[in-house]
Write a protein that binds this DNA or RNA. Structure first.
Lengths: 350, 350
DNA sequence: AGGCAAGATGACACCGGTTTCCAAAACAGG
DNA sequence: CCTGTTTTGGAAACCGGTGTCATCTTGCCT
């Protein structure tokens, strides 16, 4: 019994040195190169040889050294998540989705929050990608809309998938949700209940997601034969406080809107604060719809009707596109959102 | 032209191949080894030689190849964040803190959420650490309380810092906040306002953080000369729904508590829901204090008085302990929390 | 059978650092 | 001036894989 390979409880003086490709080659009586071919599933390889080598690999519990591969391939097995997104829940949802995909692969996820307004942004990211030799990166909105950044990734030979609204990139490098359509349905829900004065809180200018939601709102009104009232449209920056301020403006309008669509949940929560301060009952006197279905939507009072988009599956698909671009699963680029109906919406008062 | 390898318009004919340690050695007229000594700040090296080499490094813009170093050193420049924490804001705060520390170093952050109850937990993490050859890992609560996991990291030669309540580990491998003291102060705030029937929603059993907060609550009552009433103590699992259910129980108690301390904000929000359903006015008829100061605390109505602990600085310190253990900054292990006073607390009704 | 294309395998250099070992140079003491 | 010790630099091996290219089998066609 010269060799005893109990991985747990080394106990004995055996150093438990991990087997290398050389060990596998020696024991199975082939060259390193052949073992390498087995590892990489090279097609030009004899069936018999492959099985023999695989048996030895299994027996030894051989796991290829990622650092050595990274050196030789000039490419690390790391997926980078680059984002500039204030929404913790969304970022974590994306991380979860990516990890669902790379679980049981050799890939790992490295995260890199950035400051969109930093002048060193591109230099920093260039250095980051080069130094870590990232295999691919996933860009989250809003920074996914930065075309310079995308060009940089491509220049560095780093595969790239962008998350965001459609038309940002081609299908192979994009996952998107149909925000516009979802907002139209949300507005249809309100008009169907009889609402005619519907306010709108837009997201910040320059964000494609904000633009899409705006368009969806306009289309929704048009479908119901309503004309937009400029006094009922205002803008925020996706943060709670801006929703609160937007609420002040909207609730000053006369006659007051009977419903408001907010471009995200945080601003909707801010609006709700403003309504509460004025003693306006939600939903009896004011219906509210948000967007994103973040945790806060279900936990404020009344629970918020909102548009939910499938963050985790989208991120999982994005990761799939990065590491298995030719796979059929990597085909889908558009994901559907749906309206979550909760207590913040009711028919308008008579 | 047999070989043409222009990746992307590098403009000049310069191939932009990155300089290696060999280039530096050749140009500065020394050996690789000497350059390596410069990179690694080896003490036994001539001053003149060092400066000469450093000049060449700067001029060439040489950056050592991390993958090659990782292979040779058998250790990658990656910090792992292992967590099993449902609170997105907290996890993201930790990521931010770590990144503050490793910014401008060669380290990167790789994240690894896990399932505490998975039977494969230890095997998975072993494989992860070995495969990626992590330099160090940071463990977040509640999984940071798993001593087997900590032992595993040590066995694999991976430095380790645990985040959580004190007494989990020695100072060099721990960052903690003084939960107990903070809860005592929160309770003192309530008793100071005249509350005498104070309810408590504990966190799940088996969590040290939950235990610390329980102790702090008991001590706070004792300091005010109050005796704990078992009818006013209940338990949740840190989730919104469990807070809601806990609220049902507490608000059934007769006489009703005039204030409740909840072991985290989510459960406090659940309690608030329960109170609202019964038409109980907060804070006039019921004061509520939470813990964590997550986003929801400020955004629900009324805004929640809560205990805030310094997540980001704690995580930054933890990362510092990992990569620069001997540094003076790595000395601090205990961080102070403070009470954020908002509108959910008022004196009891007469 | 001979010729040839295609397929399977191996030898060897290479990725870019670190480490071992040893020689040369510098320095001290006798 | 010689010997012994310390500092400094170089050659070569090594970390553990992958790429290129040559070689050796095969199978197929005429």
């Amino acid at each position: 019994m010269p060799k005893e390979s109990k991985p747990d409880v080394p106990a004995a003086g055996v150093p438990t040195a991990k087997p290398t490709i050389n060990d596998v080659a020696r024991i199975s009586g082939v060259s390193k190169k052949t073992v390498s071919r087995v590892i990489n599933k090279s097609p030009l390889l004899g069936q018999a040889t492959r099985e023999k080598v695989e048996a030895v690999i299994a027996e030894l519990g051989f796991v290829p050294n990622l650092q050595a591969r990274a050196l030789a391939l000039r490419r690390n097995f790391l997926i980078g998540l680059i984002h500039d997104n204030p929404n913790a829940q969304m970022v974590l949802g994306v991380q979860e989705g990516i990890l669902q995909t790379i679980r049981d692969t050799e890939f790992a996820l490295v995260v890199r929050p950035v400051d969109r307004h930093s002048p060193r942004l591109l230099d920093d990211i260039r250095h980051f990608i080069e130094q870590q030799r990232l295999y691919g990166v996933l860009l989250l909105p809003p920074i996914s809309e930065n075309d310079e950044l995308a060009a940089l990734c491509r220049e560095l030979g780093c595969t790239l998938v962008r998350m965001g609204s459609a038309e940002l990139d081609d299908e192979a490098h994009l996952v998107a949700s149909n925000d516009r359509q979802a907002v139209r349905e949300a507005v249809a829900w309100l008009t169907g209940l009889g609402h005619k004065r519907i306010g709108f809180i837009a997201g910040p200018t320059g964000f494609r997601s904000a633009y899409e939601r705006e368009q969806g709102f306009a289309e929704g009104l048009a479908e119901a034969g309503l004309t937009p009232d400029p006094a009922l449209a205002t803008r925020g920056d996706y943060k709670f406080e801006s929703g609160y301020e937007a609420g002040q403006r909207l609730l000053d309008a006369l006659p007051r809107p009977t419903a408001v669509f907010s471009s995200n949940d945080e601003m909707a929560a801010g609006l709700l604060h403003a309504a509460r301060e004025r003693g306006i009952d939600v939903p009896a006197q004011l219906s509210i719809i948000g967007f994103d279905d973040t945790a806060i939507a279900a936990h404020i009072w009344p629970p918020l009707t909102t548009v939910r988009w499938p963050i985790v599956p989208m991120a999982a698909a994005a990761a799939h596109k990065l590491i298995e671009p030719s796979d059929a699963l990597s085909r889908q680029a558009l994901f559907l959102s749906d309206l979550v109906r909760r207590a913040s919406v009711a028919p308008p008062e008579a």
